[in-house]
Computed example of a mutant assay.
Amino acid sequence: MPSQRSKSDLPTKICPVCQRPFTWRKKWADCWDDVKYCSERCRRRRSDIARREE
């Protein structure tokens, strides 16, 4: 059985909407490079951020 990683060893990213760090999840194992947002709520709010920057 492989040894488990501690949570502090998992990769993290910063959400461009809420500016909070979020950590790798098992369901993102195949698409971690494509994940940009920490949650569905932030993904839906991405257009609000784009309008604010203009």
Rank of each mutant, 00 (worst) to 15 (best):
R41N: 00
V35M: 13
P21S: 14
D33S: 14
Y37C: 11
L10N: 04
T12A: 01
R51Q: 14
P11R: 03
C31R: 14
S6M: 06
S8H: 12
C42L: 08
R43E: 01
K27V: 12
E40F: 04
E53H: 13
D34Q: 15
R44K: 13
P2V: 06
A29D: 12
K7H: 12
T23K: 13
P11E: 05
S3A: 10
M1C: 01
C42N: 08
R44E: 00
R51L: 15
C38A: 01
R46F: 00
I49K: 12
F22P: 04
R45K: 14
K36E: 02
R45I: 04
R51C: 08
R41M: 03
R41A: 00
P2A: 09
I49A: 08
K26G: 14
R5I: 07
D34W: 05
I14H: 07
R52G: 13
R20Y: 03
A50T: 11
S6I: 04
E40N: 09
P21Q: 15
Y37T: 09
D48S: 13
M1K: 03
R44P: 00
R20G: 02
C42S: 10
T12P: 03
V17D: 03
R46D: 00
V35I: 15
S3K: 15
K13R: 15
W24C: 06
W32P: 07
M1Y: 00
R44M: 05
W28H: 15
K36I: 02
Q4T: 01
K26F: 10
W28T: 09
K7T: 10
Y37K: 09
C18K: 04
T23P: 06
R52C: 08
T12M: 01
A50G: 02
R25C: 13
Y37P: 04
S47L: 13
L10D: 03
C18F: 01
K13V: 04
Q19K: 11
D48P: 00
E40T: 06
C38T: 01
S3Q: 13
K26L: 13
R25D: 09
L10V: 00
R44N: 07
V35K: 13
K26Q: 14
Q19F: 03
T23F: 04
R43A: 03
Y37R: 12
S39E: 10
W32G: 09
P21F: 08
Q19N: 08
R52K: 14
R25H: 09
